[in-house]
Design a protein around this nucleic acid. Structure first.
Lengths: 228, 228
DNA sequence: GTCGCCAGTTTTGTGTACAATCTTGCGCAC
DNA sequence: GTGCGCAAGATTGTACACAAAACTGGCGAC
């Protein structure tokens, strides 16, 4: 079947694999992540799975319930607002720094990223497109050369993916890549002011495209909905 | 001796205990944290110790070296700059929010915090004073009611403590509480603009009071210094 | 008929044992 | 005398086994 048996999984690589699966919406919010189940799937012991699950819980991608198990997180409306509030504090300034110190090679990588995203969208690979969209933002933080801020943004992007899974209202599928194109233009001009401003409004647009009225609760799995 | 035997330590509480010890400089940078050693100290197995150590490594307070062990982290000069860069992006705006929504009760708690810090300084309990100083910043984030940003700031504050341990140059011992007093005044007036501005310059002052010339490397333990 | 209690089953939490890896010290060759 | 290599010791990484807790189902009493 798969080449799973070939690779030697470590707790880190398992965590990365799960994070990507969550990011691509292959593991939707509230999915139960049983330790035995995962151990069998990856061919590793529960000990290693536990380490990976704990790592993801520190990034708020997985919720650990004592004696209940691990579940893909379901960010609340409040948490959703907070995540984008944090992003709006970090990313615009980071985009400015990136614009001011970007090399042609880095610019080319960003351009490539956008093209891949387009290709994924054309192939209706929504999950992959969403992941690449996140990679675009992450790449900008990487170019800004601030690894600490980059780590925060990385976490926020992954969490944003969960938020999108829960609260996205189909509307603007294109505006996403549109905004990224605009940012790329600013980067090409090494225009820090424009990049900061564009990132700011891009994030605002993202929040606007979500349905964050507390009326519609996460619509989670059965009992979870009633425990609230 | 101690009441350690009474308490039932969990991985979380052990992590919190270690974090506080690090924050108060009872565990200086580069201290080796052996698993057996810690297990004996807390009366728990290595399994639980490992979970705590991993948690702290996610917050960049301890560095895990494969097959080598866990050590209290030694932030590089570069990392030090990054941490304060991140703080300067997050904390000023957070202070503004806090100022605008602060209640009298919260104000009183902050005042109390400053008094405790004064008392600790008078008693020459430097570690405790440093911890309380961090708590002041953390309390502000809590008042701003943004738990996501609060979590980031909490991590940055703890890491700042390590940075101070490594790079502090004795100079302004008082300016710290001075700045906190000024912030408190702004909070009393619910003056968001002033709070944001004061926090911004407070953080700049902090960086200025560090010796971040790359000349003087961490001055770590023997071999560590040479591996760089 | 409904509510409450109790036991069975499943899943996580913790402790222990073994394997892999790295460090350290000695010995041998050049 | 110096440098390399190998073996012994120590420490972490992983797997396994047991204990604790929570959910599920059924039985019995009111």
């Amino acid at each position: 079947m798969d080449a799973i048996e070939i690779k030697q999984w470590t707790s880190d690589s398992v965590a990365a694999d799960l994070e990507r699966a969550i990011h691509e919406h292959r593991l939707p919010p509230a999915t139960k992540l049983g330790e035995d189940e995962l151990g069998d799937a990856y061919g590793i012991s529960r000990t290693t799975v536990r380490a990976a699950l704990h790592a993801l819980s520190h990034r708020r991608l997985v919720e650990l319930k004592r004696n209940r198990g691990a579940f893909v997180a379901q960010p609340s409306v409040r948490e959703a607002r907070e995540v984008f509030e944090a992003r709006s504090l970090l990313e615009p300034r980071t985009a400015r720094s990136a614009a001011e110190r970007m090399t042609d090679i880095e610019l080319a990588r960003l351009r490539e990223n956008i093209e891949d995203e387009h290709a994924a969208l054309d192939a209706s690979e929504d999950g992959r497109a969403l992941f690449l969209s996140g990679q675009f933002h992450l790449e900008i933080a990487r170019i800004a050369d601030q690894s600490t801020i980059e780590a925060f943004i990385s976490e926020l992007i992954s969490r944003s993916s969960l938020i999108i899974a829960l609260y996205w209202r189909r509307r603007a599928a294109l505006c996403e890549t549109q905004a990224h194109h605009a940012l790329l233009d600013a980067f090409e001009r090494r225009d820090g002011d424009a990049a900061e401003q564009l990132m700011k409004s891009h994030l605002l647009d993202l929040v606007a495209s979500l349905d964050l009225r507390n009326v519609a609760q996460p619509a989670t799995s059965l009992r979870e909905a009633l425990q609230r």
